[in-house]
Design a protein around this nucleic acid. Structure first.
Lengths: 143, 143
DNA sequence: TTAATATCAGACAATATTGTCTGATATTAT
DNA sequence: ATAATATCAGACAATATTGTCTGATATTAA
């Protein structure tokens, strides 16, 4: 089981973080990324494909082709990837699974979870990939 | 998709909350609980069965049998149900899915998520079902 | 131009999760 | 005792997710 995000989303986040830690304008094919992140390259391929559709990642076919970020790491946030892959549903659903959980009909942990959920959203949307760069590089080195 | 817990766990939490809001020493069969929570009774049955194994819920077979809490709502916390059904794995795994995420090799959001994760754990472990009773009753009425 | 190699699209397979059903057993009201 | 009704155990089915594979197309190096 995953913590919050789907496996696809986790891998998408990892792959985009990886790209953001690399020098700009260099392409990485799925095999490269696969080796660095230690995950199957077909899966990398598939997930990054879906991110090209969202305009976060670009791709170039053919020999010496690969994937790259279409925007500056200054302009990308983790939430952008989450949005593109898993959507924002988790930020609107009841953590206990009750239907109709709302201000008017709150579940027993509605307020507490609400605060935590908002801070989680904040975590994903406040810092840009550029701001996370040093931490990202550190983690990439350790894989 | 669910927020954090599995569907089983969500239902388990709901069912135990339901029982904790009822007068003590009254049995409820899976059909009763199913109607109140508006979920399939076979699923209620299955999930509560698994909780009898963990000693949180008791059961009585036969006519006028059903399920009941084995402990006082003073002595039950939401985390007990989570532990019994989903386990505590989510509190130890990297939110971005990196292997070996730790103090020594933190992912880019290690610290931020760590704090949120700890507060989530706190939310589930500090208040007892007895303390949540009023809120629980409110929610049950709205279903 | 040709061979090599990349993404792309989508089918396919494997696995995990969720939900349903059936028969056995236990208990109780009558 | 008997009939009614409950949990129990586990098989089974349906669905969702995850992961793999194949053929088509595009691009480039030589």
């Amino acid at each position: 089981m995953t913590v919050i995000f789907s496996k696809k989303c986790e891998l998408g986040l990892q792959a985009v973080l990886f790209l953001s830690a690399q020098p700009k304008d260099i392409l990485f094919n799925s095999s490269d990324i696969s080796k660095h992140l230690k995950v199957p390259k077909e899966f990398v391929s598939k997930v990054l494909q879906s991110l090209t559709g969202s305009g976060i990642v670009g791709s170039k076919k053919g020999k010496s082709g690969g994937f790259f970020l279409t925007k500056d790491p200054d302009d990308i946030r983790l939430i952008d990837i989450v949005m593109a892959i898993d959507g924002l549903e988790i930020f609107h659903k009841c953590v206990l699974g009750f239907r109709g959980c709302s201000f008017e009909e709150p579940c027993p942990v509605h307020d507490t979870w609400g605060a935590l959920r908002d801070r989680t959203y904040k975590m994903l949307s406040e810092e840009t990939l550029a701001q996370l760069r040093d931490k990202t590089i550190n983690k990439m080195d350790s894989l």
